[in-house]
Computed example of a mutant assay.
Amino acid sequence: MTEPLLRVEIEEAGYEAGKPKIEHVTLHVQSGKLTGLIGPNGAGKSTTLKAILGLLPEVKANVSFTGSSDKYAYVPEHPVFYDTLTLWEHLSLAAAVYGMDEREFERESLLLLEKFRMTEVRNHLPGGFSKGMRQKMMLMIGFLLKPDVYIVDEPFIGLDPRATKDFLGLLEEERLRGAGVLMCTHVLDTAERICDDFILMADGKVAASGTLDEIRRTAGLPGAPLFDCFDVLT
């Protein structure tokens, strides 16, 4: 197996000293692969993402991005935006942070606006957007970078079916390019269809990991859908 683009080994992590929320969480994200991070509410998924991103005060972990550029994009569950900046200005700001060439920024931004059907609102303030439109803005900012690794938290919340299809199409293009994806989601039927492997968490620990067939073997449910395995293991 090739060297993963993202290697995570968390001994423990949490918000207060001596009170870990997650323990012994190990995961790898491979080039061109989509790893699904799943589990019930309170299982530790969001804490795991925060530990990977260095956003927790108490962490004992080794996290390494080993891609050629060490670039990653994080798409949060709850959109974050500036009230006084338009959609285009948000994209421009992200491009400046990423150090993108102006011509490349123009080309990629226009393509993303078209793909997500947001061209007509490029000069509008996101404060007036619907939840789904704000989520699309977050996805566009993430895709703009073309990183080695995408870390995506609950991307389907607020997206209509067409936007979901657009998102999945772009994600497939990026995987074909060689990017790896770690995606936290509650949408198990979609996860079963698109993920290459899974990290299933419960009570702050990894309850099972591997391909769907490996998850099925752990659950003792050969041929079962992911939902049934999820129900047994969590």
Rank of each mutant, 00 (worst) to 15 (best):
E192C: 06
L188K: 11
R162F: 11
D166K: 03
P225F: 04
T48I: 09
L182R: 02
P4Y: 02
E16W: 10
T48S: 10
T211I: 05
I38G: 01
E23A: 14
F167L: 11
A208G: 04
P126L: 06
P20L: 07
G220L: 09
L6N: 02
T190A: 09
I52T: 05
C184G: 03
A95D: 10
M140S: 06
V149A: 06
E16D: 13
G132P: 12
D196K: 02
A13P: 08
I157V: 15
C229L: 09
E114K: 15
G36A: 15
V97Y: 15
G18T: 07
T84L: 13
A43V: 09
D231Q: 14
F105D: 00
R117E: 15
R107L: 12
T84M: 13
V149I: 12
L37A: 09
D148N: 13
A207C: 05
V181Y: 03
I151N: 07
H78R: 15
A96P: 00
A224H: 02
E3L: 09
M183N: 06
E114Y: 06
L176G: 06
E173W: 05
L145A: 13
N123S: 14
T185W: 04
A17G: 00
P155T: 07
T47A: 06
V206N: 02
G132V: 12
I215R: 11
G127C: 07
H78W: 05
I141Y: 00
R216H: 05
R122S: 14
V25H: 07
R177V: 01
G14V: 04
I194V: 15
P57E: 07
D228Y: 00
L34Q: 05
H90M: 11
R103N: 14
T218M: 05
E9H: 13
C229D: 02
V75A: 11
V63Q: 01
Y98L: 14
L221A: 03
D228A: 14
H78T: 15
G14F: 07
P20V: 07
L139D: 01
W88K: 14
L112R: 08
H28T: 03
L159T: 11
A208F: 01
F129Q: 07
E104T: 14
L87H: 09
A179S: 15
S64H: 11
Y15S: 09
L145N: 10
A202Y: 12
F167V: 11
